[in-house]
Amino acid sequence: MFADRQFDYMDRVRFTVAYLTTPVYWVADIPARTSSWMDDVFVSHRDLIEENAELRQQLLFAQRELQLLAGLASENNRLRELQAAAQGIQGEVETAEIINVSNDPGSRRVLINKGVHDGVREGYAVLDAHGLMGQVVEALPFTSWVMLITDSRHGTPVQVNRNGERAIARGQRGQVPGLVLEFVPDTADIQIGDLLVSSGLGQRFPKDYPVAEVTDVVHDPGQAFAIISARPMAQLDRTRLVMLVEPELPETPERLPDTQSDGEPQPVEEVSAGIGSEENPAVSDNEASPDVVEATAGEASDTAVETVNDAAGEQ
């Protein structure tokens, strides 16, 4: 155990042994596959026609929105060109299926049926049709463990869709499948019903995907920060089909001129640079920065503190 926790080489051992465990999961998944197969086979003609009509309608709506989106995208691109900012992300997307759920009630992880042999690597973002679900934390040969955003060791960099207010959404401890926004000052403009989208800071998750909806805001005078809870948009316990998106890593180091001013140590400056400027999160440039703005666990709170300091500074 100590070796596994402390040294990297145990990952290789795990990886190799995982070849043996894959069949067990394959067999354990048979009931679920059978039931979805039955759904496909034993379905009445009328149901199919109805479903078809419904899907057509949905497609129509989606296409309409897509047309609007195309207009917005080109407009956005022009604006970005004006600002000489980096291009928005459109990484490779792959689909996968959830085949198992971690049986440890104290952690929220799921197993998907794509692994290293399908090109999945650690750090891939996982989405469903409604929003962000989590990220790959362990890629095995044919399967991968995904940590959901509601795990208490997972922090997701988010911003309020309405006004761009930034925060870190941490999974709630215990068994409540929700999110809490950490270290948000009492003065922050966040209201119930606000949509939280991924901010793209941390460069793990693609920007602007829906993450959660604010369900509760408590301003306790005795607390240093507001207590804000949110409900994930993704159907974490219902979806079976998920999408995998490669994390965006900036190819060309780019630094905005106005972030040079303060003389803080390197990593901190990277973070506050992304936050302080309104342009784009893809401003961090050295190899260390993805770790610094790491979306998982420990470092997240440090980042959050920086966020708060920065926010306080702006006011």
């Binding site: 155990m1 070796a3 596994d4 051992v13 043996l20 465990t21 440890d104 362990e138």
Partner: peptide, 17 residues
Amino acid sequence: GAFVDILEGSMLGLNAL
């Protein structure tokens, strides 16, 4: 136990112990 560890994705050696 080690096999269960891999299966559950927990720390290697936990269930083994």
